[in-house]
Each structure stands twice: as C-alpha cells, then as structure tokens.
Design a protein around this nucleic acid. Sequence first.
DNA 1: GTGAAAGCGCTAACAG
DNA 2: CTGTTAGCGCTTTCAC
Lengths: 356, 356
Amino acid sequence: MKKAARKSVRRKGMAVTIDEVAARAKVSPMTVSRVVNGHSKVRDATRERVMRAVQELGYVPNRAASSLAAAQDARIALIYTNPSAAYLRELLLGALHGAARTAAQLVIADWEGFDATAERKAARELAKSVGGVILPPPLCESKVVIEELTRASVPMVAIASGHFSHDISSVRIDDFLASKEIVEHLVKAGHTRIACIKGHPNQAASTRRFEGYQAALKEAGIAADASLVQQGYFTYRSGLDAVEKLLSLRKPPTAIFASNDDMAAAAVSVAHRHGLRVPQDLSIVGFDDTSAATTVWPELTTVRQPIASMADSAIDILLRTIRRKPSDTRVVVDHVAAHQLVLRDSVAPPGGKARG
Amino acid sequence: MKKAARKSVRRKGMAVTIDEVAARAKVSPMTVSRVVNGHSKVRDATRERVMRAVQELGYVPNRAASSLAAAQDARIALIYTNPSAAYLRELLLGALHGAARTAAQLVIADWEGFDATAERKAARELAKSVGGVILPPPLCESKVVIEELTRASVPMVAIASGHFSHDISSVRIDDFLASKEIVEHLVKAGHTRIACIKGHPNQAASTRRFEGYQAALKEAGIAADASLVQQGYFTYRSGLDAVEKLLSLRKPPTAIFASNDDMAAAAVSVAHRHGLRVPQDLSIVGFDDTSAATTVWPELTTVRQPIASMADSAIDILLRTIRRKPSDTRVVVDHVAAHQLVLRDSVAPPGGKARG
DNA sequence: GTGAAAGCGCTAACAG
DNA sequence: CTGTTAGCGCTTTCAC
C-alpha cells in the first residue's frame, strides 16, 4: 500500500485530516479543500465522492490550519460600552457566528468609562493587535477612536450607527423610516397624543428615530407638542424618569413611542404603577426587538433591528477589506439591512377598549 | 547580513512574527517562544532582551499557528436553551474570554426547543466535531445529552448546575449556602413573612436554593408557610404570575426571595402595579446578580454568582482534560466558586419605614 | 539554558 | 478540472 497518507508524528488528537479524506476519496488533498470550501471548479462526480468520504469519516476542517495557510490571520475586535444585556447578547451571538463561519478570531473588549485620553490610548493599542474593528454605538461616534484607527489604517465598520458617514463602513437599518413606520402604526390605531422618549443624544440613531417620529406626525397632520417629547438615554432607568414626567402631564399621552425596547419596558412598568392598563389605557411601542420586548407583559409592539445578523455581516465586510491587496483602492461600504414592524400586544386604539 | 530571517513569500499581512523578534533579540525563535509562553528555563538576561524586542516590535503571537503547532485543536462547544439575555451575556463573555486566553475555538449553539430525539441527534453530531462541551442549566441535567457525550468520551463541564454529580465536572457556587445567606439577611432586617419564588423544577439549583430558604427560616425559628411558596420558572413572566398570587393573599408577605434576578425584577413590577413601595412596603431580593438586578428601580439586593468567570474556568478545565494523555485516568473535578451577598436598595425592615 | 530540525493541517500558486 | 509544490508561524523533540 504505497497510498498511505503522510504519517503524523506529533499529532495528539485523533481528528480526521484532509489527507485521510483525500486518500479515501482517491483524490488529492487540494481537491478535498476545494470541495469543502465550495469552490466551483470541481466535477460533480468528484465532489460527490469527496463529500461521501467527508461524511463517512466525520471530517471537520481544522480552523487553525486553514487560517494559517490562508494567511487570514484576521483578528477582529468588537468593543463596547454599556449596551443593555439584550443588545450585547445579540451583538455577541452575531459576531460569534460570523467568526466561526470565517475562522476569524474575535476579540471582545469593554471600554466602559473610558475618557478621551483612555480611549485614544486603547485605540492605539488595539490598532497594533487586530486587523479590523466593529464599532457599535456610541463608539462609532467617537472622533478619537475613528481618528486613531484611521491613522493606523485599521478597517472599521460601524454597526447600527444610524447614518452613513463616508469615513467608515457601516451596517445599519434605516432608523428614520423604521420609526416613522411604527409611529404611523400608532396613528392608524387612532392616536393623536403620541409621546416620544428620545434616545441618548450622543448617538445619531437617536436623532434619526426622533425625526421619523416627527415626520409621521406631520404627515398625519398632527401638531407637534413639545411637552410630549422627553429626553431618554436608552436605559431602563432613563425610561422610568421620562415616562413618569409624561404621565404626570395635565393632558397625558394615549400612546408612547420609546426609542428602544428597554425604555419601552420601563414605560410599561410606570404605567402599571400609575394604575393604567396597557394597551387599553396607554399604548406603548419600542424599538430594536431585543429580548426586552418579549420579557415584559404585555409583549411589546416594536421594530425589529436584526442586530445579530448585522454583526455577522460586519465581519464579512471587515474580512473582505482586510484580505484586499493593499494596492486596491480603499472601499467604504454602507449596508442597510431590512427592518420589520413586529406587531404584538402593546397597542390598542385610544379610549380604553382592548384591541379586537 | 546573513542573519536575515526566513523570507515570507505568501504572507499577506504585515504582522510581526516570532522570527523577527528572535532576530532583533539575537536569539532563536525557540527562545522567544519559551519567553512568551512563560516557560521557566530561560536566563533572566535573555528573557529581558526578548521581552524588550517583543515590546518594541509590538509582537502578538499568531493563535492559529500556535494551536496548529501545539496540536491543541481544541474546539469547545457552549450550548444553551433560552437563558435570560442577562445570563447568556455573562456566559458568552466569560467563555469568549477563556477562549481568547487559551486559543480554544468556541462553538456556540442554540438548542432551544429540542425534544429528546433531537437532543440525542444533536449531541451525537456535536461529539464528532468538538473536543469538549460546556453545559449550562438546564442542559447539564439532560440525561440524553450526558449519555451521548459520555459514550463518545467527550469531556463536559456543567456550569452553575447546583450540585456535583460525579458523572461530569462542574463549576458552580454553593447555591444552598448562598440562598440561605440572603434569606438570613431578610430575617435580620426583621422579616418573618418571607415568600419564596422557586426556580424551574427541572434544575437542581432550584432545589438547592429552596432548601437554603427553608434552612434559613428554620434556623430563625420561623414556621414554614406553604402559601408563601410559589412555583416559578426563572423567567420574568413566571415571576409576574407568582408575585401576583403572593400579593393577593389575605396576609401577603413583607419580603420576597426570588430564585433569580429576572423573577425578582418581575416582583418589583407587580409590587408597583399594586401600589406598593419597594422596599418600604415590600422587600425583594434576587439571585445571580445579572444586569437585570441593576436595571430595575430600586436596584436589587441579590447574591452574586460570577457566571462569566465560571465560564472562563470551565474552559480551563476542559482544556486540561482534553490535553491529558488518553492513558491518564479520567478526572472529574468539582469547582465551587465563591458567591457574594450584594446589598443594594430593595430591602428595608417591614412596617413601611425606609431603611436608615 | 539554548538552538536546529521537523512538522502541525491546510491552501495559494502554478502546472498540466 | 485536478495535482504538485511550497510554505503559513509556531512549537515539539532532541541535541549540545
């Protein structure tokens, strides 16, 4: 049997290697590689033979070996500062999925509480050790971070940034349109006194969402009422305060549009504290469709922002940029994902009657 | 200059390699490797020279290359079913940290909604592709999963399982003691009508926590009152129902011990809905110290279970087992992490007065 | 203590 | 369409 595959001297485990598969399928390892990675130029019969061998042997490619060989040493950083648990969970899950899919190495870092100096230092440090960076809000608005990373020519992608800046790539939804649609949903239900809890002022998405709210009102011919607009900061706590003020108004709103689910959940809590039923006495809608939306009772009508799959896409974009030859011109992409209205149980017509 | 390091033909990136560091420090790559990995047998002077070179060049070892060379192709799976967002966030963060530290490759999978058949199939599949598995509750109680994985001799570690079973390694806290302590805290504040919302019956930790509650009461000489014990399922929603029942009692409790933070947060919400102030009219404590505890107002007094660092430890244990020579005897470890009482603002003496 | 040689498992590049 | 060659960057093994 001169067909014997290379002998492994140092192998510890007993994992199946590409050579064993190749031997079994009677092809070269290279062909196996092509089949496994879905390259096109392989005859169907060959492909099938290889697949069968893969199946029979239970072959799983060694990520370490392929990244090494492909020189795709792509380390990608995902840095964050105090997002809600539900938001970070989505972000992490999506990035992890993308990293597994592409064999990228994910580096997670918490930059909570960094001032500009610390941010600059951390960014400089980061630039030395990774090939790309994912920037969720509010870091994607940080001049300091973008400046340092740009200087080191480390590709970045802003995720859910609310707008496209031409400086860096971004993966986002159309926040304006999304919030306009959900406020229109409230209008269609018959509401005219619709309050808005704005998001954190340091984030562009907050502005977009507020503009969507204003646009929906304007198109419906509803006059803007400044007393119905409260500043929030995307946290549950800030939502508590904002709604407390709203419900203490002489003429309180019949519906509340919160700029994210956490604040909407807070609204439900305060409404109950005030003895109001949701949605009969007060309709409430959120934004993002994180798990916060389905945690509370009643479950929230909201807009789905597919954060996990956005993070996944972000990794693709980064990898594409990293693998591009340096000679290629720099490309900045703007990926706008689809949002989706999610109708649940927190909206009813005004006037105390439950929804049909 | 015949010192020139190996020429790289296929290298895409510009990352610093071990050879460059070696050249600069005038030692062999092997010595650099030893220094970087903290092996002992290196002269101090040499070590220092290498460290300086590493520093100056900004060298970061290539994980892919080292895992490949060390044949530590350790793929570790973390599978989960519907934990709360806050819980999963901690789990993910910890596992990610451990994976980055050790160059293990993390595989995350959602097994939500699998029946026994699907679980068995998935476990069999998983066994073929990973070297170790982390099992958070309730999967760590799944006979089917443990059976399949044991049969394939894939090392597992149960995390936060509530007890040690001798079948598989576990990383946990002492749930009994932890809950006993927090209930004692309630007792010390003067409460005698202390309710308990139990956790999901499919998890051993639920039982331990309930036993801790009972023990604290017994030691304080407080008679058990079955009407003050409600079944919960660790979800916010189940907490809502349980507390609703508790507060409708002719003689409602003055304090509630919820078996996790999500249910405690639900308790706060229901209390408010009933017009009760927390903690003046009702004290509430949780368990875990996830972000749910600090999201609500007032912030919850709870017991900290260091989930993230437990996940991190789990990876270490798995790796140690995986790397052990097959000839070594099988070792099952029981790692009990320290819990910690976290005093915040949700507890006051009974009788309507705020805490000093 | 330190170094030289020999791969780990895979894939880019180039033949055929 | 398929195979051959030559490594990717690191660590093991075994000399010295």
